[in-house]
């Protein structure tokens, strides 16, 4: 089973979101899923109680544009993705600099497993 999504590109995401906004749709969430080398971001919009999803994939180190220009509420979601997955985001209206949840000296991007083989091994032993 798979969530229905419309695939799009990081470049086009802002324009697509703008279209949703103009239709009076609500931005529900953006979900970041790690898939190997790439990060997959699913943007969920609510249209009259039904979910419509946009999906983009991006290499970890490549920044994606921020939706805060369209949906003001996106800043919290995007800060979270940035902090927990190490996803780079351009143009955040309020950038908490990866210090929304974590403190100085904490392990960066704790939700991302990729490039952290050691941590995985530890778990297996545990």
């Amino acid at each position: 089973m798979k969530v229905d999504t419309i695939k799009t590109s990081p470049e086009a995401i802002v324009a697509s979101a703008q279209k949703y906004f103009d239709d009076g749709c609500r931005l529900v969430a953006a979900t970041c899923v790690e898939e190997g080398e790439e990060l997959r971001v699913i943007y969920s919009f609510d249209r009259e109680l039904s979910l419509e999803n946009l999906e983009i994939s991006t290499p970890r180190e490549k920044a994606i544009p921020s939706l805060t220009g369209v949906y003001a509420c996106a800043f919290l979601i995007e800060n979270e993705m940035k902090e927990l997955f190490g996803l780079e985001i351009d143009g955040l209206s309020l950038d908490l600099g990866g210090r929304m949840y974590l403190v100085d000296g904490a392990e960066p991007a704790p939700m991302a497993d990729h490039n952290k083989p050691k941590a995985k091994e530890d778990e297996k032993i545990g």
């Binding site: 979900t31 899923v33 790690e34």
Partner: peptide, 16 residues
């Protein structure tokens, strides 16, 4: 599970 993501209502309400 491979991923569990929870978006809670307060998370959505804080920006306002």
């Amino acid at each position: 599970l491979e991923r569990l993501r929870i978006r809670t209502p307060t998370f959505a309400n804080i920006p306002s």
